[in-house]
């Protein structure tokens, strides 16, 4: 016999409610990945998942779960099964060549080359003068 302090629970008449048959597999639906945007123009960021029967309900739940406190301007919901991904265990596929400075601006020291050339030029111009002095 449940005698609750909560009037709403007393009204629910738990004694006469049907016994639980337990939840069936997937009764709480599939999951959607939720992407949150806090400011117009910034990227949506993955913040977590919700269980929902369809994308519209996913947005409704996501608004409650991920938009109830911090600033939110927009939310995306993507069915988890629609996300295609590599496996983390395969991350070595991203290490192709050991050194990738050839893809960076910093990999091209142009000024160094110019300075070296100018130094050489200067040395060549002064050379004859030095020879004259010796003579």
């Amino acid at each position: 016999m449940v005698t609750s302090l909560d009037p709403r629970i007393r009204r629910a008449d738990l004694e006469h409610s049907p016994a639980s048959s337990g939840l069936n597999p997937n009764e709480h639906w599939d999951t959607f990945a939720i992407f949150h945007q806090d400011k117009r123009g910034t990227a949506h960021e993955f913040v977590g998942i919700v269980h929902a029967p369809d994308p519209e309900m996913a947005l409704v739940f996501a608004k409650e779960q991920y938009g109830r406190r911090k600033k939110t301007v927009n939310i995306w919901a993507v069915r988890s099964t629609d996300i295609y991904t590599f496996q983390h265990k395969d991350e070595d596929m991203f290490s192709t060549v050991p050194e990738k400075t050839y893809r960076e601006a910093s990999g091209y020291p142009v000024r160094k080359r110019i300075n070296k050339y100018l130094e050489e030029l200067k040395a060549m111009r002064h050379k004859p003068v030095e020879e004259e002095e010796e003579a």
Binding site: S4, A12, L14, S17, P18, A19, S20, P53
Partner: peptide, 19 residues
Amino acid sequence: LAVRRYAEENGRWVREALM
């Protein structure tokens, strides 16, 4: 636990309707 059971049982028709 009775309240949780009640909520799951009585929420089922809503979940099924949405499903």
